[in-house]
Design a protein around this nucleic acid. Structure first.
Lengths: 237, 237
DNA sequence: ATTCAAAATTTGTCTAGACGTCTATACCTA
DNA sequence: TAGGTATAGACGTCTAGACAAATTTTGAAT
């Protein structure tokens, strides 16, 4: 690499990296060479590379995680928290491909918390769904959902097939449902959640706890969702 | 200075400097020791001081000028450019003390530009007012105003007394007036203007050219104002 | 006194190296 | 197999020094 005079080298490196990102050489989410690789590529000192990266971090183009590396900052998805928000609609609306993969499911007896939210007696059989929501293959959230088993027997297969709870509910005659309550908090993810989100354990997640009710007001789902705070921004309206 | 463990030294320096600024050790506009002075004060390497200063610059607390030094960033005043904006109202609204000092005044014959804007014949006698507007003693702008002499005979004394054109106009029966046009540009100040603004000649000023009209639509003032771009930000609504 | 050029100041950039902290991975042990 | 440990990899901080660029000061010449 040869440097043009009049513009500091670190700015030229910043410019080049920015161009690479625009050109898709480095794709959002992962990639970006290590500092030492950039040192070799540009033939400058590590500090010079760091100066350029600092500028990119400052302008929110890349995100750096100590010990891991630098990552092209994904476009943060605005996720409106309305009473009728549907994951797939929101993602599709941003011209990104939504996907919701089921990780595991089982039937268990409701503890007092679950029973309370689903308005059933403790010990009632409920279906637990553990799933990952993705956009363009990038995980945005992991969700644990609880549904009353008696009402939704066989919903797991439908969910796996349609990859959408909204669709699955329709097969059970629920064409419309509403978010009743949402509680929001920020925590650090468990290693399992961090793994599924493909994010560092020291990056926080936004946790929401919500209950969906059918048009009659009966609870049909109680769920806890962990959003990657690097990729999703909740919008409360 | 002794460093507490767990927090990087540059962050502690940043914190200390921030505290100094809050405490008024370094006052807005001028001051701030040089890098080498800070090096001696904190007993660290120059780069460490620079890292701290960079953070302060980033958070807009300090402004650095190569070859000159670092300056505590004055609070930038948002100056809305509405048709009824009054300097003293804006400054008072920010809980700062407005002042408008007359530097010089004279009566001269209008050249074609002035005549055009004031809608009078070239050669008509006009009053020229040259004044400095300040907030809390800090100069924000210098203004050159032209008023038709025939209509506003004796306004200079009133202006000096009330330090406000708005007030002076009132004495002439003008309770309400409106900004008609405003043209905005950015230039480097003349040495005289830079001096009055107490700012460096290589720091730009925002220049506005405006015409005020009375409620009947007759021009009462044509003025050119140079705002210190470091201290004022024009807001167009 | 003014002007012009040189010198001194002050901040900006780049290089070099050392060590700390955090993360991921491989390996070893129970 | 599970869990802890050691190690390597990667970013974070700090020091040291040199030179460049911009500004201010100094001083000499006119």
């Amino acid at each position: 690499m040869d440097w043009e005079p009049g513009l500091s080298i670190w700015k030229q490196i910043e410019k080049q990296l920015l161009a690479d990102i625009s050109d898709g050489v480095f794709t959002p989410g992962e990639k970006m060479p290590t500092e030492m690789e950039l040192v070799r590529r540009f033939g400058v000192n590590r500090h010079t590379v760091r100066r350029a990266m600092a500028a990119l971090v400052d302008s929110n183009v890349v995100r750096v995680e100590q010990g891991r590396g630098a990552f092209v900052q994904e476009q943060i998805l605005d996720y409106p928290l309305g009473s009728k928000t549907r994951f797939s609609q929101i993602v599709s609306g941003r011209h990104r491909l939504p996907d919701k993969r089921l990780i595991s499911s089982e039937v268990l007896k409701a503890n007092s918390t679950i029973a309370q939210f689903l308005d059933v007696k403790p010990g009632t059989r409920v279906i637990e769904l553990f799933s990952v929501s993705e956009a363009d293959g990038v995980p945005l959230a992991v969700a644990t959902s609880y549904l009353p088993a008696a009402r939704f027997d066989g919903i797991v297969e439908i969910f796996v097939e349609t990859k959408s709870l909204t669709e699955a509910f329709k097969r059970f005659g629920i064409d419309d449902y509403t978010r009743k309550t949402t509680r929001i908090s920020a925590t650090l993810p468990s290693s399992r959640v961090a793994n599924l989100l493909k994010q560092a354990r020291n990056r926080p997640v936004i946790s929401t706890e919500s209950v969906d009710v059918d048009s009659a007001g009966a609870p049909i789902e109680y769920g806890v969702t962990a959003f990657s705070s690097d990729r999703v921004q909740l919008i409360v309206e």
